[in-house]
Computed example of a mutant assay.
Amino acid sequence: MTAISVTKARENIYQILSEVNSSSQPITITNNRGKNAVLISEEDWNAIQETLYLNSIPGMAESIIEAGKEPLEECSVYNPDEEW
């Protein structure tokens, strides 16, 4: 992971935001007090939040893994009118 000082980040914020969004690589922003931060794209942040949410539902991760093993021919067709 790339690390830059808060001063450099301040000087190049638009370029850094562009890099983070295009590469999906987080950047650590450091300061001299040892209180660093990590900059990630909004898209990556949303993906992390979704993963945390899904992992918080008991049995969800196992269900997703099992569904991934199911042959595509055996999968149901999505029906938006189907009651859950």
Rank of each mutant, 00 (worst) to 15 (best):
N21S: 06
D81V: 08
V20N: 05
E11P: 07
Q15N: 08
T51Q: 03
T2Y: 10
W84S: 01
N31Y: 02
N36F: 09
K69S: 06
A37W: 04
Q49K: 12
N12G: 02
S24I: 01
V6Y: 01
I16F: 07
I16N: 02
M1L: 05
M60D: 06
E42D: 07
S23I: 00
I64E: 09
V20E: 03
I48A: 13
E83H: 06
E43S: 12
M60V: 02
P80K: 06
L17I: 14
G68T: 04
P71S: 05
Y14C: 06
A3Y: 02
Q49N: 11
G34I: 12
A37D: 08
I29F: 12
S63E: 14
V6H: 00
T30A: 08
T30S: 13
I4F: 01
E42G: 10
T30F: 02
T7L: 02
V38D: 06
T28M: 10
G34P: 13
A3E: 07
P58D: 14
G34M: 11
S5C: 05
E73H: 07
T30W: 03
Y78P: 05
M1W: 03
E50A: 14
E73M: 12
E11R: 15
E42P: 09
N46C: 09
M1D: 04
C75Y: 15
I65M: 04
K69L: 12
Q25G: 02
N12C: 07
R33A: 10
S22F: 00
I4Y: 00
V77D: 08
A9H: 08
E66H: 04
N32H: 15
